[in-house]
């Protein structure tokens, strides 16, 4: 018996659209995905909208406006499984840099008419507002991990999305450690794997796009980066990138103020 195609919705909050694009970027696998799910709501791909409820909702972006605070509640109510995708949805994104500053200064500096801007003082991840069933990290997310989550959901199994360090991924692929062999600062030892070790494979330290790994030892890595010649201020800034508001990174960067 053919199974009923689950209804998939893709929602956007404050974000750059890059993670939704990963779904369109599935290319070869996209047709197979479309064959197995009904794309019910996905404005980046189609204007056609099918009414809820939805079996699976992919939520991109963080909550930065009063309107979004309301809207995420509506999305949650209409969704069976709610999966957050990307650094914005799971940690607040790069825009969470405003959390540690006075937001009005940014508004005045950026916009010609600040009076038109209605924004919250913080950028917060989706799980701060509603219960989330699964989170996919990354800036952007990995296409393989997205497919794995969809695949696992369709087949009723747990997704293979590990929470261990980037180092494991580097070592499995044979990438030489840039921290040990070149003395480059690298967030790999405290960052969750999944990106396909993009930066270390190009001989650059990891920027922590996938956010903190399980049980990260922030203090030890900070000490090591200081020994490698990083200034206190540089260490603070290093943790304040795409996942600046993730608990472990936020607290460690605060400790370097």
């Amino acid at each position: 018996m053919a199974r009923r195609k689950p209804k998939l919705a893709v929602w956007k909050f404050s974000s750059c659209d890059g993670c939704q694009l990963s779904l369109l970027g599935c290319e070869d696998e996209l047709l197979a995905v479309v064959g197995e799910v009904e794309i019910a709501y996905f404005l980046e791909a189609t204007r056609a909208r099918v009414k809820g409820p939805y079996d699976v909702s992919l939520v991109e972006g963080s909550v930065t406006t009063p309107e979004e605070v309301e809207r995420i509640q509506q999305v949650r109510r209409q969704s069976g499984l709610l999966v957050t995708i990307g650094a914005c949805a799971t940690a607040g994104g790069i825009q969470a840099l405003k959390n540690v500053k006075d937001v009005n200064q940014f508004i005045d500096a950026v916009y010609a008419h600040p009076e038109y801007i209605e924004t919250l003082e913080t950028s917060t991840p989706i799980q701060d507002h509603v219960p989330v069933d699964f989170e996919l990290r990354g800036c952007p997310i990995s296409k393989e991990q997205l497919l794995e989550v969809l695949n696992a959901t369709l087949n009723g199994r747990a997704p293979n999305v590990p929470k261990y360090s980037q180092c494991i991924e580097c070592k499995r692929t044979g990438t030489v450690c840039v921290m040990v062999s070149q003395g480059q600062p690298c967030l790999g030892p405290v960052t969750q794997a999944g990106c396909g070790n993009v930066c270390p494979a190009c001989e650059r330290g990891c920027f922590g796009c996938f956010g903190p790994k399980e049980t990260p030892n922030m203090a030890s890595l900070s000490r090591r980066m200081a020994e490698l010649g990083m200034e206190r201020r540089e260490i603070k800034h290093f943790y304040r990138l795409f996942t600046a508001n993730a608990d472990a990174f936020r607290e460690e960067s605060k400790g370097h103020e």
């Binding site: 360090s165 180092c167 070592k171 450690c177 030892p189 405290v190 030890s220 890595l221």
Partner: peptide
């Protein structure tokens, strides 16, 4: 444990 990163590099190499 104050130094160990639990990054698993030792076991991988």
């Amino acid at each position: 444990a104050t130094r160990c990163l639990s990054c698993a590099n030792c076991t991988m190499v």
